[in-house]
Amino acid sequence: MEAVVFDGKALKLSYTNSYPIAQIENDTDVIVKVEFSGICGTDLHIIQGEFPASKDRPLPLGHEFSGVVHDVGKASIFKVGQKVVVDPNSACSLCDFCRKGNYQYCLKAGINSTIGIWRDGGWAQYCRVPQVQVYALPDGITTEQAGLCEPYSCVSHGFDRASPLNVGDKILVCGAGIIGNLWVTTLHHHGHRDVTVSELNTSRLEIVKKLDTGFRLITPDVLANEKGLYDVIIDCTGVGKVMEINFNYLNHGGKYVLFGCCPPTHQTCVNPYEIYDKELTIIGVKINPYSFPKALGWIAAMGSRYVNYTKLGVKTYALSEYQKALADLKTGIVSKALFKIV
């Protein structure tokens, strides 16, 4: 089958049309015929050797994907032909973290066993998935919209971690890639209007305009000159230096939501006295523990007003076009690249 395969030892990405097709191995397995599979910022870090991933053998990446059930194990609850989306993360269900409902902290599962990072993922025509990580799509949600369910599930977890986010709070979103845009749609959908988006790449700001939220869109130099204070800052850049700079823009009692995934090598210097004096809160957000149902609910409620590829700056590519997809992402002419495999 067609696949975009990553060699973790050589840090090399390649396209092939002869990768072994996924097969049922366990009674509760589901074979998903992939239709939409996203390229995440984490994937870019993996390809550059900045984020841990499997080095056991070359395998397809891709932890954000949706599609149709192609085959099932004899004990599966799913049926061939069902439209589904896959949660790439799961619990070991045995450690204290997992049994308390916090599998994002699990040392064995969670981010340490993610489909598309440690196991064959969705950058392929077919993918084998345990049924516990498969969700049937409700009526009205397309597989195209569901291609964004995984990042929305992460935003949902971040939204819960940062709550309460009071309507009327002065909010700053740093970074207008796809994650920044998903936060923009989420905040607007929940009634927030006093929101500023800061992004260095003006092409990305042009994309945000298509969402028609009325939010203020600026570049970081404007932010620095204003030296304004914000009640909530949501960092979607994944750059340690950005946090160091923007931390100074927090108001008394403010919250800094560190959402973008920084490479482990990044360092940030913040003033502990300022944290004390202003009673500041730093909030980390890691993956999406049990937040897929909420993400599906959001997508159903938001509909095409928000979950629209054109408005969000999302572009689709064939698997064989992976090099162009990566190049377009890096230049910022698209906010998100997904493989369309139909």
Rank of each mutant, 00 (worst) to 15 (best):
E35G: 01
E35R: 08
F36Q: 02
F36R: 03
G38S: 07
I39P: 00
I39Q: 05
I39S: 06
C40E: 02
C40D: 07
C40L: 07
C40Y: 09
C40M: 11
G41D: 02
T42S: 15
T42E: 12
D43P: 01
D43L: 11
L44A: 13
H45D: 04
I46W: 07
I46P: 00
I47A: 08
Q48T: 03
Q48K: 15
G49E: 11
G49A: 13
G49T: 03
E50P: 04
E50W: 07
E50N: 13
E50V: 03
F51M: 15
F51K: 14
F51G: 08
F51T: 03
P52I: 12
P52C: 14
P52V: 13
P52M: 12
A53L: 10
A53Y: 07
S54L: 09
S54T: 10
S54K: 12
D56C: 10
D56R: 14
P58A: 07
P58G: 09
P58Y: 09
L59F: 15
L59A: 13
L61M: 08
G62E: 06
H63E: 07
H63C: 10
F65I: 00
S66C: 04
G67C: 06
G67F: 02
V68N: 03
V68E: 11
H70I: 00
D71F: 01
G73N: 11
G73T: 02
G73E: 09
G73C: 05
K74H: 12
A75H: 09
S76E: 01
I77G: 10
I77L: 12
I77P: 00
F78H: 02
V80K: 11
V80I: 13
G81W: 04
G81D: 05
G81A: 04
K83V: 01
V84H: 05
V85H: 06
V85C: 03
D87F: 02
D87L: 03
D87Q: 12
P88T: 04
P88G: 14
P88L: 14
S90D: 11
A91V: 01
C92S: 13
C92I: 06
S93V: 00
S93P: 08
L94D: 14
C95R: 10
C95A: 13
C95H: 12
C95T: 05
F97A: 15
F97M: 09
F97L: 06
F97I: 00
C98G: 09
C98D: 05
C98P: 05
C98T: 02
R99V: 01
R99A: 05
R99I: 01
K100D: 12
K100P: 00
K100C: 10
N102K: 13
N102R: 13
Y103H: 05
Y103K: 12
Q104H: 14
Q104D: 10
Y105P: 00
Y105R: 15
Y105L: 15
